[in-house]
Write a protein that binds this DNA or RNA. Structure first.
Length: 334
DNA sequence: AAGAATTGCAACCGCGACGTG
DNA sequence: ACACGTCGCGGTTGCAATTCT
């Protein structure tokens, strides 16, 4: 018996999303929150499968997303985290606020991989390419070789902590990288000397970068990012009745957004966090982008292609969302 | 200038995990 | 214990944009 398709594909649309579809999805999620993706397309009046809606939202429409190239710090973190976690992009993404697993995966495959190879680093093992693989002498060794790096590291981590080893960071822009490769070879286990310390807790893994993430992000911490939850998405009643309609017009949609911005984001878990979160979740840049988004004249002129949506090829400074690197994004919000 | 090759990224696909009845 | 539905993840693809020849 074959697996049932995730959704009835007959009559469902595929391919790039149009402005109208984006508008409907955003409007629906703002009004109803994220729940039951399977039901979303029907309720939102979209001819898409729920999976497609979820992807579109999480990878592109989510308001807390950063756009644009990864910063040097972010790249460094990705490399470190990849050394620890392997291709577990969602885990890696969870340590990079505003970045999606897809984005990181793409960036890894298109940029970082090449950079590492150029530097003589094997992107898979994070070891120097010239580094001859150890010939396993027994099954245990063999197993270790095939184990995810993360698992291989769990044991040496504590040892590493005890030894207070100097953290080895890979600066991919470092022209003296070759000398670092030598250092890595000397240290035998280059990955183990990475900057990330993991503590295994049940099945979950806590990643503790040895470099100060808060410092790197200029005080920006993932824990402070107000990730959207269904119960957190609250649109005032005055507008929700109109906006909940899948055929809502742009004006109502904008009103919803502004109502939303007037809403005080609260987090009941922590009063201090309350203060931090009592702010407009989406900054003016995002609103202006949404203005673009919902303005059919400006948006999706070319069949809704994203490059037209946010003008990815314009200078970054012209692009309200894409310009928000980690620092400016954080400062804009806080 | 034009065609070919390459790049970058959004979106899709299939699978596994998990929850529920 | 099992079947089923849903969701999330990682790998892959398709195609527009860009670069090269």
């Amino acid at each position: 018996m074959g697996r049932q398709p995730c959704c009835d594909k007959v009559g469902l649309k595929k391919g790039p999303w149009t402005a109208e579809e984006d508008k409907r999805l955003i409007n629906f999620i703002l009004t109803n929150g994220q729940c039951c993706w399977r039901a979303v397309p029907k309720l939102a009046g979209l001819l898409r499968c729920g999976k497609s809606c979820r992807l579109r939202w999480t990878n592109y429409l989510r308001p807390d997303l950063k756009r644009g190239l990864l910063s040097e710090y972010e790249e460094k973190m990705v490399i470190d985290l990849h050394a620890q976690l392997g291709n577990r992009w969602s885990k890696i993404a969870s340590h990079l606020p505003g970045r999606t697993d897809n984005e990181i995966k793409n960036h890894w495959n298109t940029h970082i991989k090449k950079k590492l190879k150029k530097m003589g680093i094997d992107p898979l093992s994070h070891k120097p390419l010239s580094h001859k693989p150890l010939v396993p002498t027994n099954a245990t060794n063999n197993q270790t070789q095939n184990q995810p790096i993360e698992e291989q590291q769990l044991q040496p981590i504590q040892k590493e902590q005890q030894n207070q080893q100097q953290p080895l960071t890979i600066n991919i822009n470092d022209t003296k990288f070759e000398s670092k490769i030598e250092d890595i070879e000397k240290q035998e286990t280059s990955i183990e000397s990475s900057t990330i310390i993991e503590v295994k807790e049940k099945d979950d893994i806590t990643i503790i970068p040895s470099f100060d993430t808060m410092e790197l992000m200029d005080g920006f911490c993932i824990d402070e990012v107000p990730m959207i939850e269904p119960n957190e998405i609250i649109v005032s009643n005055t507008s929700s009745s109109t906006s909940s309609s899948s055929s809502s017009n742009s004006t109502n949609f904008l009103e919803d957004l502004h109502d939303l911005l007037d809403f005080e984001w609260t987090n009941n878990n922590n009063k201090e966090e309350d203060n931090a979160n009592n702010m407009a979740f989406w900054d003016d840049d995002f609103i202006s982008s949404l203005n673009l988004l919902i303005n059919d004249d400006d948006y999706g002129v070319n069949n809704g292609k994203r490059n037209q949506e946010f003008d990815a090829h314009a200078p970054l400074s012209n692009n309200s969302r894409m310009v928000t690197d980690s620092e400016s994004w954080a400062y804009d919000l806080f």
